[in-house]
Amino acid sequence: MPLLHFLSLPCKPDRPYVTLRSCRYHLPTVRPCCSCDMPNSIVIAERLNRVTDTHREATSTPAGATMPRGTGVRRILTIARNAFREAVRDRVLYNLVLFVLLLTASAIFLGELSAAQEAKIIVDLGLSAMLLFGTFIAIFVGTGLVYKEIERRTLYAILAKPVGRGEFLLGKYLGLCLTLAVNVSVMGVGISLALLFVKRGYDPLALRIWPAVALIYIELMIVVAVALLFSSFSTPALAALLTFAVFVIGHFSADLKTLAAATGTTAARIFFGLLFYLLPNLSHYTKLTDAGHGLMPAPSAFIVALAYALIYIAVLLAAATFIFNRRNFK
């Protein structure tokens, strides 16, 4: 960088030197600013102008581009799509490989039994594995869903965009539901194919298991919402534990009611009664043995189960949003 002879510096007479801010634009250069920690080094005006021009070209709105027309729904779907992408890239769906191996192994080793028995076992085993694997994903991914974002501070940049906290929560929730939908559907198809294989041809059972599959999926949606609620105020480990407890107790929900009726003291009766009404009744959603026998739930029962789930999920998400909205992030 050639040093300029100061005689030729085109300075304004009243401002011959370095009050930096004022000279930036009319001093060509006095010396290059090579280390930026150097106090008062002079920024090269020429450089600045060049950068400015490129910036202008680069970011001026392209011709015909639309202005942002964000709606809440679109933002939620965008977040959901990203949450799905996260799950896929974190290899959550790899559990499907394990599932396929399990089904194949059982189809091979059950060769001794009659085709009908074999089909029943495949349905039992397949649906149980579907519920088990799905619950694992719902609990472990579900509790980390928001916690991880807070911990790693990835959500700071997102919440500074026009995204409400409720929208964020709902988007993440739907993203995991989408992941589970893919997981459950692939497993369902796997079971159907296995049935066709052991029966050596079409069998109505291959289609009759699907209502049970749908019920399992609805149950998983409830579990995710429970996990999300717990993780909105506690650590993932605690949230996972609590969610698992709800999952287990939820399956014995009917027993709670009996327990409430059977116990003597009023306090115990109120306690178990409260638990019964507070915790989700998950026993509606696991119709494994029925499915194995080719029995489908009555349409009315199915609709009741669905409505119950939707209401329950809505309440859980509203509570999670309420808590999440009040949180200070570290």
Binding site: T66, R69, T71, T78, I79, P162
Partner: peptide, 22 residues
Amino acid sequence: YFYDYLTAREFLEYCAELFGYT
């Protein structure tokens, strides 16, 4: 610190989408 499973380009596209651009 941003989503480490995204590429730089994907992340910026995601951010732009949140603003509702096409």
